[in-house]
Amino acid sequence: MLLRRTLSTLLIAVSVQVASPAVWAGSDIDVPGLLMKMADGFRMLDYHGQLMYEQNSKMHSVEIVHLVRDGKEYERVLTLDGSQSEIIREGKPVDCYQPGELILRDNLPQGLIRNIGSLEDFYTFTVGEEDVRIAGRKAHVLKIEPKDDYRFGYELAIDKESGLLLHSQMMSETGQVMEQFKFVSLQLGDIDEKALQPVTKNFKKIPQGDCMDAEHMSASSHDTPWQMDLPQGYAFCIYENPKGVSPNAMVYSDGLSTFTVFVNRGEEVSDSHREGSTLMYSRSINVQNEIYTVTVVGEIPEATAHKVASSLRYK
């Protein structure tokens, strides 16, 4: 099947601007700076650790390795419980930014920022007064509460020294913990490259994603023929015709929450359920006398998926 990648974007501006030094709710800590430090931590640091993932009282553990060599990222993820499965991503330039990363950095063209708003328009950020200790390291606590029904909240513990995210809890509309990641052991720096070697035969390599370089800096438009009503704050990231996945796939993010929309021709069974914290929402709709099935996948409330899927139309 033909693979046609057509990435273009609304976003765009790769020169890394210095974020506003605004101080957000309840602390003298620069929250945008803290968020950027967190994002940079994942992309720029060498780390090797084991983390626990918990959802609905079910828990499993994962090993994660990340190294930067010659300006490129190399990553490996391995499940530690049950059957071994492994994912490798390698060669992503460390200065290669994805749209969601630019949103977090408030690094979008001015016109677009006015359209989608900034993170503080959709979330309230509160820094905890007391530090916590995770995997033997001191961390800031950052509480992120949504201001509408189209995204979930988070409670994060961010390493004071490195900025790496050590603990993340996703909160439901009622304040319940839906899922959490938590490092239980972590080595920062001085990582042996052997740690990147896959330990399984059938590891999977995943694509690194296209960078938002000057070529893609067109505020004009993207190639998707589809248009949807997005909740404010979400921006279009990627449009693809991925092999073996769907004729059309579109990714949207507000910088913290990400969802993907798949569009298939034809009528299929409607459904809405969660795989862990990830919503899988499908419904068929009539677009100019053609029936399509829209599937929205993401860590988002059902209201978001419903709004997006029910508004599918041609441009």
């Binding site: 993820v77 049950g82 994912i87 969601g100 929450s257 990400t258 795989e275 914290s277 990830t278 860590e299």
Partner: peptide, 22 residues
């Protein structure tokens, strides 16, 4: 795959699937 590229949490999203599809 795309969430891990766009939500600023590195490869953590892959921890969501206990049996990664390989």
């Amino acid at each position: 795959e795309h969430a891990s590229l766009n939500n600023n949490s590195g490869m953590l999203p892959f921890a969501r699937v206990s049996n990664l599809e390989t």
